[in-house]
Design a protein around this nucleic acid. Structure first.
Length: 297
DNA sequence: ACGTGCCGGACGCAGACATT
DNA sequence: AATGTCTGCGTCCGGCACGT
C-alpha cells in the first residue's frame, strides 16, 4: 500500500467523482481509476459504490476512510514539520550554553538573530560543558556555546572570543587592596569552585596546575551567584570571568597577572550530524555577531 | 441519440536492479 | 561504468453503462 494510493482514495472519497478527483490530483482519470482498483484489490474489498455518474463510499470505504484519516493527518503534519524545520526562515535551532552566558550574551544574541529571522524557534539548554558535549555527540542539540576545553573526535570547535579570568575575593581579604595579584599569592586562600565538568573549572584547574599549586577547594557549586555568595561570606576566593549582572557588593575583583588567566569561548557542533539550513544560518550569524563584539571591545 | 463518466488494454517512459 | 531486463506508473483511446 502506497502513501499515494491513500491520497488518491481520500481525494475521490471527498469529491465523490473520479474525473474531478483526477483533476485535483493532476493525473488522468484512468490512472486514478486503476490506482483505486489496485487498492481495492489489495484490501480485498470494494471501497466505493458506483452511483449514477459519480461514486460514493460504501460501508467498508467509510470505515477505511475513518481509520486512515488520522494517519494521513499525522503524515501531513510530520511532512510540514520537516519543511518548517529545514526552512532557514522558520526552523528550530537547539543551543546549549554556559550559565555565565545566560545573563546577557545569549539573550542579546537570540534577540539579534530573531530580528532578521523572526519565525525561527529556539530550544535552549544550560549545562556543564561535558554534559553539553555529550548532548552534541548524541545529536540532541545543534550547537554548544562554551569554554573551549575538551577535544573530541566528532566535535568541531570554532573559537569566538577570549576573555580574562579574574580572582574574586571578599572585601577585607589581605590582597583585596592590590591592583593585581599572581595565582601564587592566592595559593593559601581557600577556593570556591565550579563543579567538575564545567569548562571554566577545567580552565581553573589548568591554571593552578600551571602555577604548581594544589587548590584548597572548600566548596563546589553550579551557579555563579552561589559561588559569589560564598565569597561574600568570606568562605574563600574564586576564579571566574567578569560576569555581568552579578551582585558585587562585598566582593573585590582582582586581575591576575601570573600565569596569564584567560579562557576561550567557542561554538561546538557535531561534524558527523546533519546541520539544518537554519542552523547553518545561525552559525554564520553568530560568527559575524561575536566578531562585531570583539571589535567593539 | 448524445453526452458524460468509469473501466481496461496497449504502449511509453523512467527508475531499480542484475549482469558483464 | 555500461548495458539489458523488469517493474511500476503514466497517457491514450476505445468500449460500455447510464442519464438526459
Amino acid at each position: 500500500m502506497e502513501w499515494q494510493q491513500l491520497e488518491y482514495f481520500h481525494t475521490v472519497a471527498r469529491v465523490e467523482h473520479f474525473t474531478r478527483a483526477a483533476e485535483l490530483l493532476s493525473v488522468s482519470q484512468s490512472a486514478l481509476s486503476r490506482s483505486i482498483s489496485k487498492l481495492e484489490e489489495e484490501l480485498g474489498v470494494k471501497l466505493f459504490e458506483r452511483k449514477g455518474r459519480g461514486v460514493v463510499l460504501n460501508r467498508y470505504g467509510k470505515e477505511f476512510y475513518a481509520k486512515t484519516s488520522r494517519s494521513l493527518q499525522e503524515l501531513a503534519q510530520a511532512k510540514q514539520e520537516m519543511i518548517d524545520l529545514l526552512d532557514p526562515e522558520r526552523g528550530t535551532v537547539s543551543l546549549a550554553f554556559l550559565k555565565s552566558l545566560g545573563a546577557s550574551f545569549v539573550p542579546n544574541l537570540v534577540s539579534a538573530f530573531l530580528g532578521s529571522c523572526p519565525r525561527v524557534h529556539f530550544q535552549l539548554f544550560q549545562n556543564a560543558t561535558s554534559v553539553m558535549l555529550d548532548q552534541l555527540e548524541a545529536g540532541d542539540i545543534d550547537f554548544c556555546l562554551s569554554t573551549v576545553t575538551e577535544t573530541r573526535a566528532s566535535i568541531e570547535w570554532q573559537p569566538l572570543w577570549t576573555e580574562d579570568i579574574f580572582a574574586f575575593v571578599p572585601v577585607g581579604h589581605e590582597l583585596g587592596n592590590r591592583r593585581q595579584v599572581s595565582l601564587q599569592e592566592l595559593a593559601d586562600s581557600r577556593v570556591i569552585a565550579l563543579k567538575q565538568g564545567y569548562g571554566t573549572r577545567t580552565v581553573m584547574d589548568r591554571l593552578y596546575d600551571q602555577a604548581g599549586i594544589t587548590p584548597k577547594i572548600m566548596f563546589e557549586g553550579e551557579e555563579v551567584v552561589t559561588l559569589m555568595g560564598f565569597v561574600r561570606a568570606k568562605l574563600g576566593i574564586t576564579l571566574l570571568p567578569d560576569i555581568k549582572g552579578v551582585d558585587m557588593e562585598g566582593i573585590v575583583r582582582l586581575p591576575v597577572d601570573e600565569p596569564e588567566c584567560r579562557r576561550t569561548i567557542g561554538l561546538a557542533w557535531n561534524k558527523n550530524s546533519y546541520l539544518s539550513p537554519v542552523a547553518n544560518r545561525f552559525r554564520q550569524f553568530l560568527t559575524e555577531y561575536s566578531g562585531g563584539l570583539t571589535l567593539a571591545e
